[in-house]
Design a protein around this nucleic acid. Sequence first.
DNA 1: TAGTGGTCTAGACCACTCC
DNA 2: GAGTGGTCTAGACCACTAG
Lengths: 244, 244
Amino acid sequence: MAAAQTETLHSRILAELTRKIVDGSWPPGHQLPKETELATQYGVSRMTMNKVLTQLAQEGYVVRRKRTGTVVAQPRAQSAVLAINNIQDEVAALSRRYHWRLLSAETRPRSAQDQRQLDLDAEEGTCDTLFLQGLHYSNDDPFCLESRAINLGVVPDAAGMDFDCDVPGSWLLQTMPWTNARHHVRAVNVAGRDATLLQLPVGAACLEILRKTQIEGEWVTYVRLLYPGEAHQLVAEFEGRPGG
Amino acid sequence: MAAAQTETLHSRILAELTRKIVDGSWPPGHQLPKETELATQYGVSRMTMNKVLTQLAQEGYVVRRKRTGTVVAQPRAQSAVLAINNIQDEVAALSRRYHWRLLSAETRPRSAQDQRQLDLDAEEGTCDTLFLQGLHYSNDDPFCLESRAINLGVVPDAAGMDFDCDVPGSWLLQTMPWTNARHHVRAVNVAGRDATLLQLPVGAACLEILRKTQIEGEWVTYVRLLYPGEAHQLVAEFEGRPGG
DNA sequence: TAGTGGTCTAGACCACTCC
DNA sequence: GAGTGGTCTAGACCACTAG
């Protein structure tokens, strides 16, 4: 975070304790003084110190246990978080022109190919489903091929939408309240129609992102995003700490 | 999270308010009652309600402003987080046998190839550097090719280590206190020596993860991890909300 | 200038866990 | 049984900001 504001009491203390852990003054396993002691040392109330220690714990720097007190956590797995943003923002971030072209839209029963390509869950096959395919462009170059299934049982309005104009992802985001999603990311060799659409030679490496979106237990949409591998990468900053 | 314990006051209230937002009872833009009112409604002190609202805010569900009060946030970018774990844990999670084989280890000036392959920062070239390469195996199949540079100025002990036995990543993790890292993930077509080592045909799609690790502003290590694309994928759960 | 969230305190009770 | 963190309260002052 920005170290600009060392304003509040607990943020100042938090920064101080974090520093001791990060620079090794308090190595992993080190036992911290108890809440009341720390509160006295820093001249604050126990609630304030509790706020600091609670935050330190939920950031993974320390482990707190009743009776035994607070100790500096062991750095564990090299786990990190990668941000997956929406495509329009990605293109905009590169200061390039963005546009979307709808290739196909049809309401039909799912095929075996849909099932395979979008990694659809088998038991969720009964609803009316809208299948879409389209291309995201960056400066008139294909940037991402999107294949999507939308559950019309959950989002009936999608049936009447003109996805020539509205980008399905953005529209769904505006339409639906809050959602949960599961992502899979892997590398694939592009082939066939996908290669043609992305203007890539057969066999070129692409980054494939599969996303299943749910709301309140019902599936909303499955998406497959295919990015030319050389042209795209996910970037992540990561603060080293356990869990995540 | 697990909905098991609806024990504490604020966790119960937090769950209740979150539900109202997620199921659409409180749509984006909806104005919440003020802290004191909510506290009265739920029969708790203002501090307790503040704790709830603060957490709701830092989870991105609401936006709080002085004078104007608290409103439900607009769902923004489809951003998500992807976990990158360490390789040993990944293999273990698949209930497979793991082992590591060191291919090469040498202390030498960086070459143009190192620079390119590991995406080394130009200005960080003066220190003594240890270069390693090795393979992670899952059930005796190549699972990941690791190429690494270690800054001996920061980790002098690495020079005397026997990385035939110790996996460099794990050892560094145990040795160093807390670190920060930057990741890049992309898809590449494997070629040359990399293909041979991973026992893949030339051109096979691979997931490439580049990681730069820092501690207190100094670079510690650069790693390039190359996974056979078909055999590996990153998975992420994601709670829909702005920022992240 | 008035109303909101942001913060802090001093004290209290409880649950859990190790001895 | 004793000590720790986990939680909650009632009241207070401050900073920011819209009107």
